[in-house]
Design a protein around this nucleic acid. Structure first.
Lengths: 355, 355
DNA sequence: CTGAAAGCGCTTACAG
DNA sequence: CTGAAAGCGCTTACAG
């Protein structure tokens, strides 16, 4: 009657889940055991006799007890949450990865905490600090701008999995995708269709993906006995706008070309629009290849030939790796190899344009 | 030396932010005041003499103290976090809203907790329970399938802002967009270009947006003195695939049409591909209008005429409304009116096809 | 196998 | 204006 707790708390909505009101102590009392025992059963921390266990299980079910993660976090140090540093919460590229992470993490009882790094190292550092202050159990970083050293330092404090780069450090798992090989595949596809003048739209070259894709392009070109022509390589920054601008610059430069390989699908879409504006048809006049295989690539006009990037698996694997790290295991996961998806934006070379 | 805390804690990385190690008690000791005083200064909870305040501020800065949100959440009930129930973390439509929410929330010192409702009422209910067990201070629901009653019930426990519907309840703020008017605008645009046989691709009709957009289409058609023709209305579910299928069914039905209004851009993209496959050019043969104005609409081929949905503002406003609710104020925010963005997928009507 | 007790790092009535 | 103290809901050595 005079319980101050009941005075303060508003016991409305005896919800189906009974959220929030029922505490571990109430369960302990109902089951006739100590709080410690309930805690141990909840966490599987120790052997407990069968009768107590059933009594507790029954009490939990009857009261609709849900452990309070906040208290758990304070007391135990574990919050069952893992921070996810993405670059932009609305990135069309990382979307699939976020979904994969959310699914496998929640299936394992963990909650993801998504934050956006905004492609800035300082911002990412701030994100990581914020996540740590929220006591996440681990951190997944999707690519990012942070130095390997900074990540390694963070990994000394809590498990880290990072995608989009290759590095080794204790407590850290790096998951990389073979961008070089992917770019080689794409370029080779164009070469095998008879294209000899293949323009390339680069991504951000400070970004490892951007660098590797350029390297792959160049490698394939040279392996085919062709000269690497800087005049066919246009700068870009992974946005549609930069793909559009690149094509305009390319056409205006009057360098002949019969195909374009864009470092990502978004730039390929921009390039497609650029070609359309200049009355060049894909693939009749120009073949176009992208990279990433965004969901929207299938519905591009024409459907885009591109290198499939397994972002969904990336997310799942990153989450699994985190789960393993959290369990004290050493993850040994690897991403599938790149694979070319041929759709309708490429065909055999005709005569070079703008000769 | 014998401090158990220092035995357990690993005092590595005397980080620039000194995260985690420094506690409020240490600050209090350093400043020569009580913990309560430090807490009050941190929270602006009470008047504090200037000298103590400066002493505390100085100690905080010197020690690099960062309050522990977990402890704060347990003790004070406030976690400075707000749950955000979206439908899919990788939704191209809600992406902008998520960004807006993240920005304005973090700027105000709150952290968003994103969870995916998967377009299922039960799933959403689970999400809300999970968020509440994490002690979020409020919940933002983007549309969703939950009943108004369920939301009102939640709002009795903590502040709720919901988008995509109109409702009133204590502690709840609903932010709606005028889908009806948007659909009217789009249809009217087509009518004013001389189109008389305008096909409509419906969205999910169990969804309020889907329903309202159909209503708007019908209203404009009838206001123009035309008959509403069910044969021109194709079912869809807001996905590209359903837009594609709708166009195929439409063409196969041999109902003549000169324009298509799709209930959202994604279906318009699918429709565009369907037309392309049937060798119908947009806009020469068929005019095409979408709804939402996704970022990618600008780069569609041809760039898509569509109704602008202010998703970014939606996110910002939802977050602001939450902040106001949290501050005990009553939000009086409203979304901008719909606005047609004319690009290159529409033009004056030619003769009806398939006559 | 199981309790009692201390403690996680804060906040907040309750008294000055 | 400011402290001492209790408490938020759990977990975890420490002792049986």
């Amino acid at each position: 009657m005079n319980d101050p707790a009941s005075t303060r708390q508003k016991t409305r909505r005896a919800g189906s889940t009974g959220l929030g009101k029922v505490t571990l102590e109430m369960v302990a009392a109902a089951a006739g055991v100590s709080a410690a025992t309930v805690s141990r059963i909840l966490n599987g921390t120790a052997m407990v006799s069968d009768d107590k266990r059933t009594a507790v299980d029954e009490a939990i079910a009857r009261l609709g007890f849900v452990p309070n993660p906040v208290a758990r976090g304070l007391a135990g140090g574990r919050t069952l949450s893992v921070g996810v540093v993405t670059q932009a919460i609305d990135s069309p590229f990382y979307g699939g990865a976020l979904r994969g992470i959310e699914n496998t993490l929640t299936a394992a009882g963990y909650s993801p905490l998504f934050v956006s790094g905004q492609w800035s190292a300082t911002h990412e550092a701030r994100c990581i600090d914020a996540l740590r202050s929220r006591r996440v159990d681990g951190i997944i970083v999707l690519t990012g701008r942070l130095s390997d050293a900074a990540l390694a330092a963070t990994a000394r404090e809590l498990p880290v999995v990072v995608t989009g780069r290759t590095m080794k450090a204790p407590g850290l798992c790096a998951l990389d995708f073979d961008n070089f090989e992917g770019a080689r595949l794409a370029t080779h596809h164009l070469l095998s269709l008879g294209h000899r003048r293949i323009a390339f739209i680069a991504g951000d070259l400070k970004h490892p993906d951007g660098k590797e894709r350029l390297r792959g392009y160049r490698s394939a070109i040279e392996a085919a006995g062709l000269a690497y022509e800087p005049g066919l390589v246009m700068p870009g920054n992974f946005t549609e706008a930069s793909g559009l601008a690149a094509v305009e610059r390319l056409i205006d430069s009057r360098h002949p070309f019969t195909a374009i390989f864009a470092s990502n699908d978004q730039m390929a879409f921009g390039a497609g629009l650029g070609l359309h504006r200049r009355r060049l048809q894909v693939p009749q006049d120009v073949s176009l290849v992208g990279f990433d295989d965004l969901a929207s690539a299938v519905y591009a006009i024409p459907p885009l030939t591109t290198v499939h990037h397994p972002v969904d698996e990336l997310g799942q694997l990153a989450a699994q790796a985190m789960l393993q790290l959290l369990a004290g295991e050493t993850p040994t996961l690897a991403l599938p190899a790149p694979r070319l998806v041929v759709r309708e934006s490429t065909r055999e070379a005709g005569p070079a344009r703008r000769r």
